[in-house]
Nucleic acid binder design. Structure first.
Lengths: 227, 227
DNA sequence: CTCCTTTGCGTACGGTGTATGTTATGAAGC
DNA sequence: GCTTCATAACATACACCGTACGCAAAGGAG
């Protein structure tokens, strides 16, 4: 009626718990992620999880770290622009696979080891390309801001991908007070809802704008990569 | 023993409830925001709130909308670059006053009216400056991505503003495995933790990089502001 | 005065995270 | 093989959450 430790592969592990939680959040959303639901998925009682994870916060930390591990880590020494471009694209793909992670990132105060490893790779890529410490700081901040900020917008879009948004959007706009929001109206009806417009495409446009700006700064930088 | 309707100013209103919820989240964090705590602050039972707000989600929607109302709304027709710069700076200030709002934005699927008004002002400012519809879309996406993304980073920084982070950071770094994360180590110890470095300053650097890039695109654009 | 709508109240239910105490197990020392 | 023991899984319990539901009392309309 009580403690029945598993043997071998059946034993719980921290990684196994985190992995199950990630799967569950992917499938059913972060709202349905509870210690109970994770435990049920693993065929275990809720309290057993606490032998491997201090509390739910730590579990969430682990989940975010697991997502970071999916980002492509840029290679220091390789061509910085294409490396960081690929890094941003794969990060976006990973965050679209795990949309709950974006909303989780802001409340995580403890960066995991995979997260630090990834940051190290990004910083290294910039430094080896000749970015000064100061410019590395600028680049790191603006690149990540664009990544996270874009996904924050993308993930919170109010429609499903497969939906006919033209009709839905038109109705939404029509429901607004007459004659107000003229610019928003024009932009939405005559651009954003037109066939062929995909908000997701704006990611690469913005990314290239940022990379172009950084390249200019790098070129204008006095030689030598010290601070 | 039961329903005792208030008179005049004592009556509950939707705005009053949203305002109390904002105050409470500012003071004690989003985690401590419950229908019960909001009700207690207003001297009312939890269920009374449901006469003015459909559910907690709608209350959260209202809170986000209230924060948007604090952003400076850029004036269409005025000089676009300074208008949008000021807009970004005030938005950052507002989001620092209400740090919970950043994490809330991603799960809000229903934009409130104040939010739409603000978007209309931003889009109008771009359009009147001669941005085509396509370029307006680019600008809108990249500007908001930088704003939200930067605040996502800033809000989740693991230390309080007044703290001596040099000591704390040095200890944190020293706790890492020897010889690993060389770039991260160097960057942190020799730049980010140095006196005078303030991560918040990176916001304006990135903002100006983005605005500069958009100005280039605007200049390169064929004349006439149609799509 | 009467009626009705509005609005706040009380109770109750099923869910949550987790503190606490108990028990069964597999590995270690003899 | 037997004993010992730390560990991991279990069971119970608690405080709190969002909110469905029904009821009561005040204010406005006729």
């Amino acid at each position: 009626m009580a403690g029945r430790p598993r043997s071998g592969a059946e034993r719980l592990t921290r990684d196994g718990i985190v992995s199950a939680a990630v799967d569950l959040a992917d499938a059913a959303g972060l709202a349905s992620l509870s210690m109970r639901s994770v435990a049920q998925r693993l065929g275990v009682t809720p309290m057993s999880l606490y032998n491997h994870v201090a509390n739910k916060e730590e579990l969430l930390d682990g989940m975010v770290d697991a997502v970071f591990a999916e980002f492509y880590a840029p290679v220091p020494g390789a061509e910085w622009r294409s490396e960081l471009r690929q890094r941003a694209l794969t990060a976006r793909e990973a965050l679209k696979r795990h949309p709950w992670a974006v909303g989780l990132m802001d409340s995580r105060r403890n960066a995991g080891y995979e997260t630090l490893l990834h940051h190290d790779a990004v910083i290294g890529c910039l430094r080896e390309a000749g970015f000064s410490l100061r410019l590395t700081g600028h680049a790191f901040a603006v690149l990540d801001a664009h990544l996270y900020g874009f996904l924050l917008q993308e993930v919170s879009m109010p429609f499903e991908p497969g939906q006919d948004l033209a009709e839905l959007g038109t109705q939404m706009i029509a429901a607004l007070p007459e004659g107000q929001l003229p610019y928003f109206r024009e932009f939405t009806l005559e651009h954003a809802l037109q066939a062929g417009y995909d908000f997701g495409d704006e990611f690469e446009v913005g990314l290239d704008l940022v990379l172009h700006g950084l390249a200019e700064r790098l070129a204008a930088q006095p030689q030598g990569r010290a601070s």
